[in-house]
Design a protein around this nucleic acid. Structure first.
Lengths: 150, 150
DNA sequence: CATAAAGGTTGCTTTTTGCAACCATATTGC
DNA sequence: GCAATATGGTTGCAAAAAGCAACCTTTATG
């Protein structure tokens, strides 16, 4: 997690990756989305080394993806909770999950993401053009955004 | 990129991450989506160390995300091209790109993904429920998939 | 008052990166 | 036809990151 300087790279993807693009950060975010909030729970569920967990939690808090909340049981008990920014990664993780469902598990994943209300699986995430039609990689291009003067 | 054994973890997300969840792999895939195909072009565009590039390209080929094609200019000239599996990561990278557009660049990204046909930006990627309505993290749950006997 | 739990930190070892040099094959320039 | 250059690597070594176990501090708990 290194080359393009996160401070100067104009590519959003690179910037995004700089914040969440490593194994443990993403596993921590996944775990947080499952409801985990405590240091020791992240540690035992993920099996991550404690110093690495400390490091990643601090970075995620620093990037405003998690918030460290003192759940003051009269002192030092903390929770790490997703911020709106963190929760908004849901679509990213869902897209990756669905990709692996399809390509790694051949559409027969052991676990499935379902709507609590009716038990139905969610739809596959797609990229849509401005008319709402699915659009493919070769149909898009990357362009400098128009910057409004002032 | 280490803990949950990729061979046994039932979580698609973990399996997906095991294949593409590291900085260089993702940057290589991004670069491939921009049209880069040659070893030396990946190297110069990304600034990645050559041994690391070799390693990642081999892993991506091993995971069927890239295909190594001998573009036999009478010998040793190769191209690394996205497979369908690799191309299908478009939605994942787009979701992450849009996340960073919003949260890192505050909706004013320097670069934008646009539809070649009409120059319009693509829509924001969303998770939709079975009725086509946007669904949020707290509205879903993860469940063991029903496995059909036989 | 001793024991344990939560949330870390520290020191050390192992693994992974990054960097530069080197190498083989094939083409190009003269 | 021979030197120079490009492509696509490999190798060796140094630096950085990760993993592991032990330790520490503050609050509960028995």
């Amino acid at each position: 997690m290194n080359r393009p300087d996160p401070a100067t790279d104009p590519c959003s993807l690179a910037r995004g990756l700089a914040e969440v693009g490593d194994w443990w950060s993403l596993m921590i975010i996944r775990e947080a989305m499952y409801g985990t909030r405590r240091f020791s729970d992240f540690q035992s569920h993920l099996g991550v080394a404690r110093n690495i967990l400390t490091d990643r939690l601090n970075k995620l808090v620093g990037n405003d993806i998690l918030r460290k909340v003192d759940v003051g049981e009269r002192g030092t008990r903390f929770e790490y909770r997703l911020t709106d920014k963190g929760r908004d990664l849901f679509v990213v993780l869902t897209a990756l999950r669905q990709w692996a469902d399809k390509w790694v598990f051949n559409d027969l994943p052991p676990l499935q993401l379902i709507d609590r209300q009716n038990g139905n699986p969610v739809q596959r995430v797609q990229v849509l053009d401005s008319n709402g039609n699915p659009i493919k990689l070769h149909q898009v291009t990357i362009a400098e955004a128009f910057i409004n003067p002032q």
